[in-house]
């Protein structure tokens, strides 16, 4: 992209707790995503991975603790939501969908100049969808649609990129292509954080891993985090809420 020199920014979590109706989904997580790091967030269903990503985007408030974005606004982060959260039947063209990535430059009223249009077309070209501009998104396969969302991320040109389950229901070739794009961002110093389920992908492509089970079970170099005792501890976490559980056991211990 044109701004490959745009470096990533660090994110520090300090005792971060996020709750749904007073039940903690993310519980007292402390640690840092270093600038330019490439981190996978893994854990069982209900572990709080997507909640953490949403908190990083600034769309979920912390019940306790804080997120230090090193002076950067969360609105400058690139964000790929889960596929289920996007209405693929909406009557939009591929180009219009990608152009949403220009929101921080254009805002509500700004018009796209020739340079903006060519940047959007360039982004589509980079994800292998040149010539698809006028196609309706409802006509695309899941893999093609995910490429469109990655093109939107390219246009966002963000120093921090947050991906929530980017490879769900995506074929092998598309996954390979999009992983190459993630590596490209990492090589150019962007901070990339992705929620993933595929352990082999995590081992191969992500140097850092955060293993979550509401709390951070382990956080650091991937080979250290993916130790059997860490994984079995994470898997022991019950998915359902325990109604009569202490409100904040860990916090009480710390206090």
């Amino acid at each position: 992209m044109s701004c490959d020199d745009l470096k990533g920014a660090p994110i520090h979590l300090d005792n971060l707790t996020i709750t749904y109706q007073r039940h903690p989904a993310v519980h007292h997580v402390t640690g840092s995503f270093e600038a330019g790091s490439l981190t996978a967030i893994i854990g069982p269903n209900g572990a709080g991975k997507s909640t953490l990503i949403k908190a990083l985007t600034g769309t979920m408030a912390a019940s306790e603790g804080r997120i230090d974005r090193a002076g950067m606004s969360a609105s400058r982060y690139g964000y790929l939501p889960q596929a289920a959260e996007v209405d693929r039947s909406f009557p939009l063209s591929v180009f219009d969908t990608v152009a949403m990535g220009d929101w921080h430059r254009l805002g509500i009223f700004g018009g796209m100049k020739r340079r903006d249009v060519s940047r959007a077309l360039d982004a589509l070209d980079k994800v292998g969808l040149a010539g698809f501009e006028q196609r309706r998104i409802s006509e695309l396969s899941s893999g093609q649609f995910q490429r469109v969302l990655f093109a939107r991320l390219l246009l966002q040109d963000a120093p921090v990129i947050l991906l929530d389950e980017p490879f769900n229901a995506i074929d092998e070739r598309t996954t390979r292509d999009l992983l190459a794009l993630i590596r490209h961002w990492h090589e150019h110093g962007r901070t990339v954080i992705a929620v993933l389920h595929d352990m082999s992908q995590v081992r191969q492509c992500f140097p850092q891993t955060l293993l979550m089970a509401r709390e951070a079970i382990a956080w650091g170099p991937t080979e250290e985090v993916l130790q059997p005792h860490h994984l079995s501890r994470a898997n022991m976490m019950e998915e359902s809420w325990i109604e009569d559980a202490h409100t904040c056991e860990l916090h009480e211990e710390q206090a």
Partner: peptide
């Protein structure tokens, strides 16, 4: 513009401010 974004991908609109 934001209304369309809000219909299509509300999470993204919130994330970009």
């Amino acid at each position: 513009r934001p209304l369309v974004m809000e219909c299509f991908d509300p999470g993204f609109l919130r994330a970009v401010g």
